[in-house]
């Protein structure tokens, strides 16, 4: 797969940006800032990893922000209204998110909807559902009650790896949030699924040429539904991390995150034309966005300018993706012309 040069370029860009801010942004290269980076963007990397699957199929999932809120609200209601123990709340919230993703896939496959349209619709549906099941609205006083179940709140744990390996004697070493390791685990699992298993190959085949995949006997429907289910599952994980951090959930949780996740995936080299990319790139892409946002903040650049810059980076990534596609087409055309 032709992901390597792109991934290398991405890593290089990440390294350069990191170095730039380390040199020029005050307090960027500090342990506490690294903690901010890891805890503030691991869940975004998880969303981007999930989002890669629909994009690899030449689709998109606009509803993940709403799925984050849905899973968050399921966890909120179960814990605070029904007093369900945390070890049951976690799988229930994940199941709700995965189900929402599966529904997206089913709509796309069985009603033959454009992924953009289908998930735009479910974005509204899921967000509306969140408001209608919100325990904050249904039960008085719950909106100010924090979630205290250890199963959930312990997701927000930090590990002092520096002391564990003895590095803290030399430098101040950042503490690693659990969410960072969750992200690494998901990354390892989904990357190896994509590269080494038949399901992964099916994803690339369906994303590269849907009709050919069907003719090759690949179950394109099941593959598509599974991809959106994975995307929903990742949104569920991200939701739990957020709920653990906030010790509550809100109806607006996750608003706008779908766009950041899509940006991270595209910056990470997942082609919007499908079939090209991996989940490693999107994870890097998410942290690249994080480095840029944190760095600019430390440099004193205003929030609004930061948004403009984020948009510009996204445009650059999409432009680069287009360039690769066009160049490939042109090369094929030239080949044909020469031979004819």
């Amino acid at each position: 797969m032709s992901v390597r040069p792109t991934t290398l370029a991405l890593l290089l860009f990440f390294g350069t940006t990191f170095l730039f801010f380390s040199l020029f942004a005050p307090r960027f290269a500090t342990a506490s800032n690294m903690e901010n980076l890891m805890s503030g963007f691991s869940f975004l990397a998880i969303l981007a990893i999930g989002q890669s699957f629909p994009i690899l199929l030449r689709g998109i999932d606009l509803s993940i922000g709403a799925i984050v809120a849905l899973a968050g609200m399921v966890a909120f209601d179960l814990t605070l209204i029904f007093h369900v123990p945390g070890y049951l709340v976690l799988p229930a919230a994940l199941a709700a998110a995965t189900l929402a993703g599966t529904l997206n896939g089913a709509l796309i496959v069985y009603l033959r909807l454009q992924p953009f349209i289908a998930t735009l619709a479910t974005l509204a549906v899921y967000r509306g559902l969140v408001y209608s099941i919100s325990g904050r609205q249904l039960v008085r006083g719950l909106s100010t009650t924090p979630i205290t179940d250890r199963w959930i709140t312990d997701l927000e744990t930090y590990y002092d790896l520096g002391s564990a390996v003895g590095l803290s004697r030399f430098i101040k070493f950042p503490w690693f949030p659990l969410s960072f390791f969750v992200m690494l685990a998901l990354l390892a699992v989904f990357q190896s699924v994509l590269i080494t298993t038949r399901f992964g190959r099916d994803i690339y085949a369906v994303g590269g040429n849907l009709e050919a995949a069907r003719l090759a006997g690949i179950n394109t429907r099941r593959t598509t539904i599974a991809a959106y289910a994975i995307c929903g599952f990742c949104a569920g994980i991200a939701a739990l991390i957020l709920v653990a951090r906030l010790t509550t959930s809100t109806e607006a949780l996750g608003t706008g995150m779908e766009l950041t996740a899509i940006a991270a995936a595209v910056i990470g080299g997942v082609s919007l034309s499908g079939g090209v990319g991996s989940v490693f790139g999107p994870a890097i892409g998410a942290f690249l966005l994080g480095v840029i946002l944190l760095g600019l903040t430390l440099l004193g650049v205003s929030q609004f300018v930061q948004q403009i810059l984020t948009g510009a980076i996204l445009l650059g990534a999409i432009g680069y993706d287009r360039l690769l596609v066009v160049r490939r087409q042109r090369r094929t055309a030239v080949f044909l012309a020469e031979r004819a």
């Binding site: 797969m1 690339y204 085949a205 040429n209 050919a212 995949a213 090759a216 079939g275």
Partner: peptide, 10 residues
């Protein structure tokens, strides 16, 4: 019915 994004073996 080829997959442009895959190698010949794939």
């Amino acid at each position: 019915a080829l997959f442009d994004n895959l190698t010949p073996a794939q």
